[in-house]
Design a binder for these strands. Structure first.
Length: 266
DNA sequence: AATGGGACCTGCGCGC
DNA sequence: TGCGCGCAGGTCCCAT
């Protein structure tokens, strides 16, 4: 999905567009998107509520309503939000008090909508590890040091470090010149420090460029992100390496496609 | 503890 | 042109 930078982009735009607006109506064509409570209760629970705050936690969007109720949106792989007019392709539509609409778009319908009392009690959120954007070097080191898991797979584990997904993990490992197949505990102190730096810098860069629109992702206005043009390995099998110009390799790790340079990444 | 597979869904691009 | 297949930004669950 939308990884941390894409969700952060949406969050920043949502703050401007929907804060202090009221949800006046709601409909969905795919009620299975609503995970809790029931679809009916969900609708009843959000109608008439004013948006007090918009929060991002890892890859989740959290909309604080009145009475400390929270609308939690997990975009998963293909979800995105489109603000403005009602869109015929929307899986769900939030009608706002200013006459505008927030469309929930999701071609694969794998996303999740929830209404809950305190988002911090959600199981998935309780289990999240520190955010990739602000994990300290010492915590990062501690996370890697005793693990025999492949570094790429470890970085995707949201309970250890949250916010990274399959795009930015590959990019960070490439920039740090670390082979994604290495076990986490094989990294030297120097490599740990470099990887930590590259994770932070790639995420910041991606936020600056409003995320990567590799496939379905768009920002709130329906525009593509600018980051996909800056990606150096994701989806670039057989293209030439940014550093050494030799062709990039694709393998599968943890069931996910993984592109890297077998010459530069040691 | 770590790894692999399948499940959840739809849509796209590719090769034949 | 049409069709079948593999693959896709995430996460959970089960088996070994």
């Amino acid at each position: 999905m939308p990884e941390l930078p894409e969700v952060e982009t949406i969050k920043r735009e949502l703050v401007v567009k929907i804060t202090n607006k009221k949800i006046v109506n709601f409909k969905t064509t795919k009620s299975t998107l609503i995970k809790e409570p029931s679809a009916n209760e969900f609708k009843k629970g959000i109608i008439g509520q004013e948006v007090k705050q918009v929060i991002r936690k890892a890859k989740l969007l959290i909309i604080k309503l009145e009475e400390d109720k929270f609308l939690v949106i997990h975009l998963r792989i293909a979800g995105w939000l489109l603000y403005g007019e009602e869109d015929p392709g929307a899986r769900a539509v939030f009608y706002l008090s200013d006459g505008k609409v927030l469309n929930y778009m999701d071609s694969r319908v794998l996303g999740e909508l929830r209404l809950c009392k305190d988002y911090k009690d959600l199981n998935f959120i309780k289990k999240l590890g520190p955010e990739a954007l602000d994990i300290s070097l010492s915590k990062f080191r501690e996370t890697l040091v005793s693990k025999k898991t492949k570094i790429k797979v470890l970085l995707l584990d949201q309970t250890l470090i949250s916010g990274l997904g399959n795009i930015y993990v590959q990019e960070a490992l490439f920039l740090a010149k670390i082979d994604p197949r290495r076990t986490a505990n094989s990294l030297s102190e120097k490599e740990i420090k470099l990887l930590h730096e590259k994770i932070v810098s790639i995420l910041k860069e991606a936020i600056k460029y409003k995320g990567s629109s590799v496939n379905s992702y768009r920002d709130l206005g329906g525009d593509r992100g600018g980051m996909e043009k800056r990606l150096k390995v994701y989806g670039k099998k057989d293209e030439s390496c940014y550093f050494c110009k030799k062709p990039l390799t694709k393998i599968f790790l943890g069931g996910r496609g993984t592109c890297f340079c077998s010459h530069c990444q040691k």
